[in-house]
Design a protein around this nucleic acid. Structure first.
Lengths: 209, 209
DNA sequence: CTAACAGCGTTACTCGGTTCACAGCTGCCC
DNA sequence: GGGCAGCTGTGAACCGAGTAACGCTGTTAG
């Protein structure tokens, strides 16, 4: 009755942790480290050490008992598992403050994801933002089809989110990161991850006392 | 080893769902509905119907067999449970695009949360944004203490997040919503919720295939 | 040399959350 | 009026994620 996740047999939590591990390992590697212990990686991610070992076990990766895990090979394994198939084009809809925040973040900090931006407002489009050309939204479907874009990011106001995401899906997108505080109703084969700032704040407010 | 949650005996998932229920119920009520069935509420939140009933059971609320749950009383119960103690002041640090997005969202869509904004850059402060006065960051500790602010939102770049959140905590904040892609190390009594856009995107990219 | 130690890999278990299944109730239709 | 249909409430079963516990291996100190 809640089949929002066609998990492909993989736990989303595991993917989240692997993504965290990867980031920490990249930073550690850039800082000159060559190997890490499970408890170090665990502490850096607020996770238990056995959790790290178990996760790496499911990846089929083994470390050495003497110096822990070598960073570079481990990174390769994680990349392979997460499917690091080169750059990933992303359709970003909505260039308000939130959209621009995501845009800047992707361009400067996450070169793997290559965004293409769209907005309804003609005052925001037909120009370059953070090195990305912004299209009017009626060009969206064509652009998605031409570039075989599979991932969409929805940064539009709540009332437009459903319609925009439907357009994304009909154009070929199969995974959506949604920032609008609404639940999207889309075909089951589409993976939807909603980041609901409102709910998150309520949660913090609740546990803050 | 990962005691980041001092759950207070309550599951964070439950709080998230209650927050969703509340929003849906408010919208339904504004649309003129007077009562709703568990399966309707469930569908609107992408949850199973028994989950809804069970959640409401833990709240001690009962619906009627004939017409489901009356919206107004149910809203009251949820409000009471989530601790709707009037307005909640929020310290928002970092007025870049992300910060302004959160700011606008709070001011226009979520009047319960009353933000006060801070930034390091003097070009952004000493003025009004979205009806909120923006202070330079060296006024932050005083303002938090004076207004007894307990909730903080961190929208600063990753390298500054740790330092900023430490300042928030020493000034009296006990709950933080963190948007920076880093893991914060703070005293155990502080509740931290991290929204990691980078990880979320990786997850979508992974399950999109 | 060997004994203590530290870290990894793995299995068994625990625990919390979700779902199943069913009982009870109420209105409706024939 | 009696059965039927549909909803709620809830004890019990189920499931999966995380954890504890333990054996193994290599390292170090005495």
């Amino acid at each position: 009755m809640a089949p929002a996740t066609k998990n492909r047999g993989v736990s989303p939590r595991l993917v989240e942790r692997l993504s965290l591990y990867r980031r920490v390992l990249q930073q550690a590697g850039a800082a000159g480290a060559r190997a890490t212990y499970s408890h170090e990686l665990a502490a850096a991610c607020r996770v238990s050490a056995v959790q790290v070992r178990r996760d790496l076990m499911t990846l089929g990766h083994s470390g050495s008992t003497t110096s822990g895990y070598e960073i570079q090979p481990l990174l390769s394994v994680i990349d392979a598992y997460l499917g690091d198939t080169g750059s990933v084009p992303v359709a970003l809809v909505g260039i308000g403050h939130l959209g621009r925040a995501v845009l800047a973040f992707l361009c400067w900090r996450h070169p793997r994801f290559v965004p293409v931006a769209f907005d309804r407002d003609p005052r925001l489009t037909e120009r370059v933002l953070d090195g990305v050309w912004c299209f009017p939204i009626d060009r969206m479907a064509d652009a998605i089809r031409e570039q075989h874009i599979r991932v969409g990011v929805v940064c539009v106001p709540a009332p437009e989110a459903q319609r925009v995401s439907e357009q994304l899906v009909t154009a070929g997108v199969t995974g959506i990161l949604n920032f609008a505080p609404v639940t999207l109703f889309l075909p089951n084969h589409v993976f939807v991850e909603t980041i609901d700032i409102s709910v998150a704040l309520e949660k913090v407010a609740f546990f803050t006392r």
